[in-house]
Design a binder for these strands. Structure first.
Length: 471
RNA sequence: GCUCCCUUCGUCUAGCGGUAAGGACGCGGCCCUCUCAAGGCUGAAACACGGGUUCGAUUCCCGUAGGGAGCGCCA
C-alpha cells in the first residue's frame, strides 16, 4: 500500500526552522516510499490565523523545494464535515453537549488544583442532556473511564496511557468550529493519511486522537513523534536562537539545500556522512531511523554546510542568488566583472551569498577605501620602484589574464630582487584596499586594467605622502 | 502537582554485550602558501549517577538526578 504523509501547520506565524524539520521528515518519508505528501493549513483558530502566515508558509516550503502533491487544504473549508461528524458522535452516544460555562470550568479547575488533583473536566454534563438557558453548548467526546491506550510510535516505541487520567475533550466549540484535536483526526482520516509525522509536543495528545478515531470508527494511522529542536541554551527554540522565518535564511544568503542538509542531520544520520544531496536524503531516509532525543540548533554548523554547498555548486547556479544579494548590499553588478567570475574567485571564502557579495564590493566601484593598517604595513617606500615598474608592465600587458599578470609580477619581483610576496601583498592592498583577497593574479584580473592602474597610482601617491610626512 | 518522553565529547551524532568509544562542527598545533580561505595531517574533548542482569556493560532492566512536553472552548 502506498503511504501518505502530511504537514499541517497552523497559520499563526511564519514557518520557522523547527517546523521545517518536521515538514522535511514528513516529505522525505513520502518521497522515499514513493507516496503522497499533503499540505494542510490548520486554520480553525480564526482569531489567530492569518492569510499572511499561510502565504509565508507556502512561500517557505516552495523556496526549500518541499513540494506537495495535494492541497493546500484549509480546515475552514471543511466546517460542515466536522459538524456532521460531531452530530454522528452525539447521536451514537459517543459525545455529548456540555453546557458548562467558562466561569464554572475555571472554578472547577481552581478547586482541583487547590486539592492537589489533576486539573481535568469531571464529566458533569455527561448525563445532563437538557439545554441551559443562554448557554451555547460545546460538544465533548465521551472518553472511556477505564483501560489503557497504547501507541506504537515509530520513533518512541510503545507508549501507554491510562484512560482514567484523560478527560472528555471538547471537539466542537459553541460556534460549531472544531478544535484542533477533532480537525486533525477527521482530516487525517478523510485525506487517507497513513503516517502522522509531527513534533513530540503532540505525543500526549495522541491518546486522545486514538479515542476519537475509535469513536468515529476510523483506522489508526502510524505515528512518528519527532523530538524538538532546542536553542543553544537548551531552552525551547525561539527567535533569539535562530528560529527565524526560513525565508530570513534566504535573505541572509543561505542556500535551501544547505538548510535542508543541516536539518536532516538533526535527529537522523547515516553512518558518518555529513553532506547529503536531496536525492541522497530521499534514498536513505526512513523516519524509523530518527532519534528520540531532542537536539540543539547550532548555527555554526549550518554556516559550514552552507559554505560546502557554495564551494561545490556550479557558479552559474549561484549567480541569481548572488545578484540578489548584491542588490541588497548596494552593488551594481553591471559595473564590474560577471558575477559568476566572482563566485569562482570567492567560493571557498564565503559562508553565505551575502558575504560573497560584500567581499566583492571593490570590484564594482571606482573608489575604494584603503584599510589604514594594511596600507601602513604594506605600502612603504621600499616597494615604490617595484610598483612603478609593475604599473608600466601592466600598461602594456596583453592579454589581460591571470597568467600574464602573474608573469609580469614575477618578472618585476625578480628584477628588484624581491620575493613574490613582497610585491604581492602591496599590490593586493593597492588594488582591493585590504590585505585579504583571492590569489593576487586572479584578483588583479578581475579588477581590470583600468582600475588596477588607477589604484596603483593612488598607492604610489599614498607612499609619497607618507614619505613626505615622515620627513 | 500529575502523566508521558528524553540523557555518548561544548554541539550534531556512530555504536546496537567484548571497541584504543568512531566521524562532523567549533577550538588548538603543524603542513601547503603572495594574504585570506580551501585542503591535508594532528591535538584536547564524551558514555549523567546508583543499583541490578551477565563471565563481561556505553549497549538490557530498575531507580535517582537533570532536561523537555502535555494536563485549554491554542495548535
Amino acid at each position: 500500500m502506498s503511504i501518505k504523509t502530511r504537514f499541517a501547520p497552523s497559520p499563526t506565524g511564519y514557518l520557522h526552522i523547527g517546523s521545517v524539520r518536521t515538514a522535511l521528515f514528513s516529505w522525505l518519508q513520502a518521497r522515499h516510499y514513493g507516496g503522497t505528501f499533503v499540505l494542510r493549513i490548520e486554520d480553525t483558530d480564526q482569531e489567530r490565523s492569518t492569510r499572511e502566515s499561510a502565504d509565508a508558509i507556502l512561500a517557505g516550503m516552495s523556496w526549500l523545494g518541499l513540494n506537495w502533491d495535494e492541497g493546500p487544504h484549509y480546515q475552514t473549508e471543511r466546517f460542515d464535515r466536522y459538524a456532521g461528524l460531531a452530530e454522528q458522535l452525539v447521536a451514537e452516544g459517543n459525545a455529548y453537549r456540555c453546557y458548562c460555562t467558562k466561569e464554572e470550568l475555571d472554578e472547577m479547575r481552581e478547586q482541583q488544583v487547590a486539592r492537589g488533583d489533576n486539573p481535568r473536566y469531571d464529566g458533569r454534563c455527561r448525563e445532563r442532556s437538557e439545554p441551559r438557558e443562554g448557554v451555547n453548548p460545546v460538544v465533548r467526546l465521551r472518553t472511556p473511564d477505564t483501560g489503557t491506550v497504547e501507541i506504537d510510535d515509530l520513533v518512541r516505541g510503545r507508549v501507554t496511557y491510562e484512560n482514567e487520567l484523560l478527560d472528555d475533550l471538547v471537539i466542537l466549540r459553541p460556534d460549531g468550529t472544531p478544535t484542533f484535536h477533532f480537525g486533525v483526526v477527521a482530516d487525517d482520516a478523510d485525506m487517507g493519511i497513513t503516517h502522522v509525522i509531527r513534533g513530540d509536543d503532540h505525543l500526549n495528545n495522541t491518546a486522545r486522537h486514538i479515542h476519537l478515531q475509535n469513536a468515529l470508527g476510523f483506522d489508526h494511522p502510524v505515528y512518528a513523534h519527532l523530538p524538538m529542536i532546542l536553542g543553544e541554551d537548551g531552552s525551547r527554540l525561539s527567535k533569539r536562537h535562530g528560529a527565524l522565518n526560513v525565508l530570513e535564511y534566504r535573505e541572509q544568503g543561505y542556500l535551501p539545500e544547505a538548510v535542508l542538509n543541516y536539518l536532516v542531520r538533526l535527529g537522523w544520520s547515516h553512518g558518518d556522512q555529513e553532506v547529503f544531496s536531496v536525492d541522497e536524503m530521499i534514498e536513505l531516509f526512513d523516519v524509523e531511523d530518527a532519534n528520540a532525543s531532542a537536539s540543539k540548533f547550532n548555527p555554526e554548523k549550518l554556516r559550514w554546510l552552507n559554505q560546502q554547498y557554495i564551494m561545490t555548486a556550479a557558479p552559474l547556479d549561484l549567480t541569481p542568488g548572488l545578484v540578489e544579494q548584491m542588490g541588497k548590499v548596494g552593488i551594481d553588478p553591471s559595473r564590474g566583472p560577471a558575477p559568476q567570475r566572482v563566485v569562482e574567485a570567492y567560493r571557498e571564502r564565503a559562508e553565505t551569498l551575502r558575504e560573497l557579495a560584500m567581499s566583492a564590493e571593490y570590484l564594482y566601484t571606482d573608489n575604494i577605501p584603503l584599510d589604514e593598517k594594511a596600507a601602513k604595513k604594506n605600502l612603504r617606500p621600499v616597494v615604490k620602484e617595484a610598483l612603478t615598474s609593475l604599473r608600466d608592465a601592466f600598461t602594456e600587458l596583453e592579454p589581460w589574464t591571470a597568467e600574464g599578470i602573474h608573469r609580469a609580477m614575477q618578472d618585476v619581483a625578480d628584477k628588484h630582487e624581491l620575493k613574490f610576496g613582497k610585491i604581492g601583498q602591496p599590490v593586493r592592498v593597492a588594488v582591493t584596499g585590504t590585505g585579504v583577497s583571492p590569489p593576487i593574479d586572479a584578483t588583479v584580473e578581475l579588477v581590470g586594467r583600468e582600475r588596477t592602474l588607477a589604484r596603483l597610482d593612488a598607492a604610489l601617491v599614498y607612499i609619497e605622502e607618507r614619505a613626505a610626512a615622515a620627513g
